[in-house]
């Protein structure tokens, strides 16, 4: 099993290394860069989907834990379908900037399952009767999320709402994504707090990767929304790396979780 963790680490580093190398030096044509920038997220999300499914399958009884991992699996599967559909539109159908599209339907519905999965883990931790930390720590989480929310509102929500250049559907989607990410960040901060309480215990390891993965994904998403809104997002932007790294961290969390389950 240690070999499997080593393998997923190696795979993560290799994919991100190639990704960074291609984006930094751009040693390929514009067409190939377009293909690669669509293929990287499909590969990364696919790895996350497979590893999350393996965790789901390794849990025998249908309980809140299995439900949590099932929801994380479905949410990530929908994001994989979003990445694949978007890639199809851009690379095969040749559509430039396919927004809004069916891919948005997959991505946005995926959030609901991710919320469900993370909420199950939080509720399960609360029900378990562990020490939850002080109200000061929860206040800090609320304040930190509030600050991020204010920044996103000032820099993105207000300009989007005021804009008269885009359709109502585009306005809705431009606001729905960051809101989806902010809710995810709030839930992830709570899970991060619980994970910190677990210290160096082996049960905390998978959660640490999962938390890091969703933080990377959410930050990448918010930056993507901001950059595309300002129309300064370019093909082969480093912003894509956040999301790709997020998927791979989630995959590492899933591999770790399976290792923990099988070790008992």
């Amino acid at each position: 099993m240690i070999k499997k963790i080593g393998f997923i680490w190696g795979l993560t580093i290799a994919i991100l290394f190639v990704n960074i190398w291609v984006y930094t030096f751009k040693p390929v044509s514009h067409e190939l860069l377009l293909i690669l920038s669509n293929v990287f997220p499909v590969i990364c999300s696919f790895i996350a989907v497979i590893t999350l499914y393996l965790v789901f399958a390794s849990l025998k009884s249908l309980d809140e834990t299995k439900a949590a991992w099932l929801m994380l699996f479905i949410g990530t599967l929908l994001h994989f379908l979003g990445e694949t559909t978007y890639g199809y539109y851009e690379v095969i159908a040749g559509l430039e900037d396919p927004f809004p599209s069916l891919a948005d339907g997959f991505w946005l519905s995926g959030y609901l399952f991710l919320y469900g999965g993370i909420a199950y883990l939080i509720i399960g931790f609360r029900r378990a009767g562990f020490a939850l930390g002080s109200w000061k720590e929860f206040t800090s989480i609320a304040v930190l999320t509030g600050i991020i929310f204010c920044l996103v509102t000032l820099e993105l929500f207000i300009p989007v709402i005021k804009s008269q250049e885009v359709s109502s559907l585009e306005k809705f989607l431009n606001i729905a994504y960051p809101i989806g990410d902010l809710v995810l960040i709030f839930l992830i901060f709570i899970l991060m707090h619980f994970t910190a309480l677990l210290g160096k215990g082996v049960f905390s390891k998978p959660w640490k990767y999962i938390v890091a993965g969703y933080v990377f994904m959410s930050v990448g998403d918010i930056l993507f929304s901001y950059y595309t809104w300002l129309e300064i997002y370019k093909l082969g932007s480093y912003i894509d790396l956040w999301r790709n790294a997020g998927y791979l961290l989630i995959a590492m969390g899933a591999v770790c979780q399976r290792k923990v389950i099988r070790s008992l």
Binding site: L59, K60, S61, D63, R127, A128, F130, F203, I261, L264
Partner: peptide
Amino acid sequence: ERIEKALIIFVGSEKARKT
């Protein structure tokens, strides 16, 4: 029994029972 219930969220019912 109480600890078993507490561990379910990390490893599922079956492994929590084993623990």
